[in-house]
C-alpha cells in the first residue's frame, strides 16, 4: 500500500509513491538521491538530517514523507546558487566550522533558518539555536564563528541572503 505525493526539492518537483510509514529522510536519500542530509540518530536528537520544509528547519528523520506532501523542501544541495556558495557555506569553510562534515549539512540548515529569523545573533543565541544539532568533532567554537561570519556577510550583502532557495 503506497500513497502518491509530490515534493518540490531544491526547486525541482518530484511525483512519487511512498509507503505511509516512510520517513522524509529515507525518501530524500533512498528514492530521490539527495544524500546530503544524513541519518545520525533516528530520534531527532542529533539534527544531521535537518532540512527546510516550507522554509522551516525540521528534522527529516521524524517527519513522514506523506506529511511533506505538497511542500517545498530545501536540502544542503540547494544552498549554493549557480555554483556560488551560500554565505553559511563560506562561513563554515573560512572558520573551519567542520571536520568530518557529517553534522554539517544539518548544522547549516538550522543556522540559515536562525539567520533568517535573527540576522545578527549573539554567541549565546547561536549556541541556543544549535541545541538540536550535535557535533562530535569541532567543540562548536568554530561553528559559532562560522555562523557569525555568515551573519556578517549576509548583512553586508543582503541580496546573497536570498540564496537559500527556499
Amino acid at each position: 500500500m503506497t500513497r502518491d505525493i509530490s515534493l518540490t526539492v531544491n526547486g525541482t518537483e518530484h511525483e512519487l509513491s511512498v509507503e505511509p510509514r516512510a520517513l522524509l529522510i529515507s525518501v530524500l536519500r533512498d528514492e530521490l538521491d539527495y544524500t546530503g542530509p544524513n541519518v545520525g540518530c533516528e530520534s531527532s536528537m542529533c539534527g544531521a538530517c535537518t532540512v527546510h520544509l516550507d522554509g522551516e528547519a525540521v528534522k527529516s528523520c521524524t517527519v513522514l514523507a506523506v506529511q511533506a506532501d505538497g511542500c517545498d523542501v530545501t536540502t544542503v544541495e540547494g544552498l549554493a546558487t549557480d555554483g556560488e556558495f551560500h554565505p553559511i557555506q563560506q562561513g563554515f569553510q573560512e572558520e573551519h566550522g567542520l571536520q568530518c562534515g557529517y553534522c554539517t549539512p544539518g548544522m547549516m540548515m538550522t543556522a540559515t533558518e536562525l539567520l533568517d529569523r535573527n540576522p545578527d545573533p549573539s554567541e549565546e543565541e547561536i549556541r541556543e539555536a544549535l541545541e538540536g544539532n550535535l557535533c562530535r568533532c569541532t567543540g562548536y567554537q568554530n561553528i559559532v564563528r562560522a555562523v557569525e561570519n555568515a551573519a556578517e556577510k549576509m548583512q553586508q550583502e543582503p541580496a546573497v541572503a536570498d540564496g537559500g532557495g527556499d
Binding site: Y34, G36, E77, Q93, L98, G101, Y102
Partner: peptide, 21 residues
C-alpha cells in the same frame, strides 16, 4: 590554509558509506 576537503562536505557531494547505492 582553508581545507580542500570542505567543498564536497559543504554541498552534500561527500560520499559516506550509507550514500552508496
Amino acid at each position: 590554509i582553508e581545507r580542500r576537503e570542505d567543498p564536497a562536505l559543504l554541498t552534500g557531494d561527500a560520499e559516506y558509506t550509507d550514500d552508496i547505492e
